[in-house]
């Protein structure tokens, strides 16, 4: 894939600043505009810049973890945050706040809604990465082969792209059986 100097350089400048902005949104979200979802979308925008610059490989380089691990981890954090109050005898999703007196910075106040927001942030980022993983590659394939016919699409590794590569490598025989157009009847 041909890379453009202007795009590359500007993405290098923009990427990290947008990520910082997304973190700002995440932390400011409790009582100002922002929050996990908005922050996650902003981070997703940053990732899409990388995609524009260097394709799906560049996106993979940016995040070492697999997309579904990020998504699942986010969901896990959010659900556990929702469940902790039940274990402590409160009601689901109830939240409390903590204040720390940090020496140099001053008083830090945070609420237990923050972990929930972090969870949402990770879910959104994971989802966007998954989308790039699932659809980012195939477009490149199509550039190479032109448009794909039915047979090509079935033979191509499209199965592996379902759910962002969340498909297991099992015996190919099972794959073909599942993919048989059994109900594409006359």
């Amino acid at each position: 894939m041909k890379r453009l100097l202007v795009v590359d350089t500007s993405v290098r400048v923009l990427y990290h600043s947008i990520l910082v902005l997304s973190l700002y949104f995440l932390f400011a979200g409790h009582n100002q505009p922002g929050g996990g979802f908005v922050g996650g979308l902003t981070a997703g925008a940053a990732v899409s810049f990388r995609y524009v610059a260097g394709g799906v490989d560049e996106v993979r380089k940016a995040f070492r973890l697999r997309p579904w691990t990020i998504l699942g981890g986010g969901l896990l954090i959010a659900v556990v945050t929702a469940m902790v109050p039940i274990a402590l005898g409160g009601s689901v999703l109830e939240h409390g706040d903590v204040e720390w007196d940090v020496p140099v910075i001053g008083v830090l106040k945070t609420t237990s809604a923050l972990p929930f927001d972090i969870g949402v942030y990770l879910v959104v980022v994971g989802l966007i990465l998954m989308m790039f993983e699932a659809f980012g590659d195939d477009l490149a394939v199509d550039d190479e082969y032109g448009t794909m016919g039915v047979g090509d699409a079935l033979e191509a590794d499209s199965v592996d792209h379902d759910l962002g590569g969340l498909t297991r490598a099992v015996d190919p025989e099972l794959h073909t059986r599942l993919r048989e157009p059994g109900d594409g009847r006359p």
Binding site: W68, T69, L71, G72, G73, L75, L76, A78, V79, V80, A82, M83, I86, G89, S91, V92, L166, R168
Partner: peptide
């Protein structure tokens, strides 16, 4: 008793999160 009410919603979600994170291990 009212503490149990959200569990039928939250538990499957927790399970969903776990089975995404550990998606490699089918068992």
């Amino acid at each position: 008793m009212s503490q149990l009410v959200p569990l039928p919603i939250v538990l499957p979600l927790l399970g969903a999160a776990l089975s995404v994170v550990f998606g490699r291990w089918h068992g």
